[in-house]
């Protein structure tokens, strides 16, 4: 009894037991913390998409139309002094035109929108004369779940014939979100539709006349804004990912070279196509699976189980990767006349 009262410390065994219990508790907690962190990242990502949906509506209330991708400035309208030696007339993309509505008008105002984004007036050295400050990353276009953060247009412009070496880095700020351009004919075949690619997504150029007009009116979205998708996640471009894993490749061109700058236009508005999804040797093999298979042209995210999508009414929903292709095709078209209802 006396010994018991004299005792002032812990035995080694007691200490070890306590440490072991704490270890087990931390071990239980860590995966939960990781999941909570990913949930928070996903929520932030969804918020970015919501802001883009609201920006579309703010743009509409200012101009009574929404910007479409892919306009070419007609040659007669193109400013001649100084001339554009690169010969490109593609205009800035949808996302760029939303910058003033995402509180980024400082970047927006630096550029000359009467000219192409492939024009020395609108390019940073060594290809152009514009201040590098115009090429700052816009956090609202970046999904925090995306691991890669690289956007080198050097090889792209080199292949396009611009005076730059393919090894010279030419960094443009990236985006993980994209306007949809169309459903490719080969995916239309999967749902029993004819093998034709029609540019009738919400932000597509009506009638495919890329010089005439670069806007869509809300009244042209006859399926209803709530039944039409305008933006999807397509994350981690310029690195290839196949079903969540980085895809090994030898050169950028072997891999294809995904471009992911929001200045680009044709380059980022992608046609959605079906992929087989089973052949790691040839990820681009045709098939009928779409979401989270291959991040080259299709909706792709680093969230589990699907991608986040902005609808025309500004709402954001999580589109499961098990969504049927019929529903996906119906959601993409703005004037298909389908009855899709609410997803899941």
């Amino acid at each position: 009894m006396k010994r018991k009262f004299l005792r002032t410390g812990f035995t080694l065994v007691e200490l070890l037991v306590v440490i072991a219990i704490i270890g087990i508790l931390v071990g239980l907690l860590l995966p939960a913390v990781q999941a909570a962190r990913e949930a928070a990242r996903r929520m932030q990502c969804g918020n970015n998409m919501k802001q883009m949906g609201l920006a579309i509506h703010n743009h509409e209330s200012t101009f009574k139309n929404i910007p479409a991708w892919g306009r070419q400035i007609p040659a007669i309208e193109y400013p001649t002094s100084p001339s554009n030696p690169y010969g490109q007339r593609a205009t800035f993309g949808v996302l760029f035109r939303l910058l003033p509505y995402l509180e980024q008008s400082t970047i927006y105002q630096l550029f000359d929108l009467k000219r192409s984004y492939i024009d020395p007036v609108n390019m940073a050295p060594p290809l152009g004369t514009l201040s590098i400050s115009g090429f700052a990353t816009v956090p609202g276009f970046i999904c925090p779940s995306t691991p890669s953060n690289f956007s080198d247009y050097g090889p792209y412009f080199a292949v396009s014939g611009l005076p730059i070496s393919p090894t010279t880095p030419y960094i443009l700020p990236r985006t993980d979100y994209r306007p949809i351009r169309a459903i490719r004919g080969t995916l239309n075949l999967c749902v029993g539709l004819p093998n034709t690619t029609t540019d009738n997504a919400m932000l597509s150029v009506p009638n495919g006349n890329i010089e005439a007009k670069s806007t869509v009116r809300f009244s042209e979205v006859t399926d209803g804004l709530s039944n039409t998708i305008c933006f999807v996640e397509q994350a981690g471009m310029q690195k290839r990912y196949f079903k969540g894993k980085p895809f090994p490749g030898t050169t950028l061109l072997d891999n294809g070279l995904g471009l992911n700058s929001f200045y680009g236009d044709v380059n980022i508005a992608r046609q959605i196509r079906g992929l087989s999804g089973a052949n790691i040797a040839d990820p681009t093999q045709q098939g009928c699976t779409v979401i989270n298979v291959w991040n080259e042209e299709n909706p792709y995210s680093f969230h589990t189980g699907g991608v986040q999508v902005t609808r025309g009414d500004g709402s954001v929903f999580f589109m499961s990767q098990s969504i049927s292709n019929e529903v996906l095709v119906a959601f993409v078209s703005r004037d298909g006349g389908e009855n899709v209802g609410a997803p899941e």
Binding site: C190, K243, G274, S276, G277, A278, N279, D282, Q285, Q286, G287, C288, T289, V293, N325
Partner: peptide
Amino acid sequence: VATATCNAEGKYKLVCEGE
């Protein structure tokens, strides 16, 4: 819908929903 693509010998293996 199951899909397949032929190789140079004209042979294919069927795939369904990515599997």
